[in-house]
Amino acid sequence: MKAAAFEYARASSIEEACALLRERGDGARLIAGGQSLAPMMAMRLARPTWLVDINDVPDLQYIRVEGERLRAGACTRQRALERDARAIRLVPLLSQALQWVGHIQTRNRGTAGGSLAHADPSAELPLVACVLDAEVSVRSTRGRRALRAGDLFTGPMTTTLAADELIEEIAWPIWREDHVGSAFTEVSIRHGDFALVAAAAQVALDGEARCLRASFGVGGADATPVAFPELAQTLAGARLEDSIISTIAERAAAALDPGEDLHASAHYRRHLAKVLAERSLLEARDRAIARRAGQIRQ
């Protein structure tokens, strides 16, 4: 459990980090919180030749609200995002999801960008990014580009990021409707484990409790987290009766292609996907209704 030999560089700016990534080539990897990469290196499952440390880059650690976006620097600690008052008020799904990520100790180190770049298909933050259609800003010495979270993930632990690119920022859409509710549900064997399956949902209702828009998705039940924009679209204009939600959840689960491992069969995962998608939508709906009724004060 000793990492293979590697070189180490600590960047103090985004530009320096990008330059290091370009200079050091394909074997270079960024390290931020190190909560996944360090044990993978210890087991020699990951063998970077260079580690580029971005913990000292101040421009990667911020949370700010700009218009319809909550913007978080990639190196923002998960715990900071979880506890940020603006995030809790404007993008509550983030805080709801982050409570499921590892443990407080790992969230104190783990970063938002690291979770996305690691791209575990059962991880919580990538799911929320897909469900909310977050925008991911990516930097390299070649410039800056932005992509939708759904276009970032290509499979388990794989992304469309090039070897010389780093995630700079994740911009989370803020839903400004009056009656918004969101929910995150998950089944893991123990608290803090990666999800067997997780589901996230957010709905906005009008004054008559009709759905203005909805979004939901499932993690851990396919090669990437999967959001269901077309299915969610069908909810617009409807009253979100239990039966409608159940049908939508069923259809979503049927569209997934879950894998199988020691802890859960594909069959069980598909079942959980249905149960959790349904629960997250019901809970999100109920929260939106409660907000409409003024029962929840922010």
Binding site: H103, R190, H191, G192, L262
Partner: peptide, 16 residues
């Protein structure tokens, strides 16, 4: 052996 690390050999934590 399919559970050769603590990722797969699951011991109860204080939360369990």
């Amino acid at each position: 052996l399919a559970s050769g690390t603590f990722m797969d050999y699951l011991i109860p934590s204080a939360l369990e």
